[in-house]
Nucleic acid binder design. Structure first.
Lengths: 140, 140
DNA sequence: TTCATATGGTTACTTTTTGTAACTTACTCT
DNA sequence: AGAGTAAGTTACAAAAAGTAACCATATGAA
């Protein structure tokens, strides 16, 4: 038997489907494109890596480590692997001694970093507000 | 004494300062505006919460929990607190029984979600590429 | 010769963050 | 009386992240 709550659920589900089929109410996370790409976007280290590669076309491991201030070898190495596998960056190793490895954005990564830069512009402009809010709530 | 490497460092540092004073080479993370705002942007759950509140102006705890598929009570409750403290959302509790709590975006949160939506549009458009890359590298 | 430095990582161990699932309070509906 | 609802909290387990030492190989310095 259908209750009022059920009715509401159905209406909501239909409304959702119309408005944004891409984020379905009952969508398993692993099938949601937003979440999928967000596995990179919502990782601070990956985001910083991509941003720095957006500023400098080619960066080597240790240079990257200096720019992405505070990252550990372990996490940097791990993120680089994932970013490469996902097609954001490419890795070129030269058979020199000591070995030289160059990281750079792929075309895909380049298109992503452009979007990302728009978001960081907002961040820079609005950061004072966040800080003000935090002070207001006694978080600083 | 200044070595070639040191020279390069100085030049790089100056170049950086000119190009993007906002992400300083030796900047402590806690003073970097991008990282600061990114503490929200680079959290998947916070991002999804804000996106849903961007679609529906007012959402209650359990509704939000259904939309942000897979989030636990614990994490939802925690993220809502932080988002409120940072000024992205506001919380209104009504002294009813059972208690009713309404969450909505602040003006600041609204301005943020607009930027965020631009990024998710890119995600939706480019998700197939990510999936293709993953397949190519045997990650699927 | 031996020590120090550099590269691009890896490994073992610890700490922090997440996820899971049960529980709470106070009232309503059956 | 028993179940259900709202908005969480709590204790415990699992996963992720941080820390620091280590690796091979070579060059340059003492």
């Amino acid at each position: 038997m259908e209750t009022i709550a059920d009715n509401q659920k159905v209406r909501t589900a239909k409304k959702l489907e119309k408005m944004f089929g891409h984020i379905d109410y009952k969508h398993p996370p692993e099938l949601c494109p937003v979440r999928d790409v967000m596995s990179v976007a919502s990782d601070q280290w990956s985001t910083l890596i991509i941003l720095w590669l957006g500023y400098f076309p080619i960066l080597r491991f240790n240079k990257l480590k200096k720019f992405v201030y505070g990252i550990s070898n372990k996490v940097l190495s791990q993120r680089l692997k994932v970013l490469e596998a996902d097609g954001y960056i490419s890795r070129k190793a030269y058979a020199e001694v000591p070995i030289r490895v160059e990281y750079s954005l792929t075309e895909f990564g380049q298109s992503y970093v452009e979007k990302l830069l728009e978001l960081t512009e907002w961040m820079q402009a609005n950061s004072p507000k966040v800080l003000a809010n935090r002070e207001k709530y006694g978080l600083l």
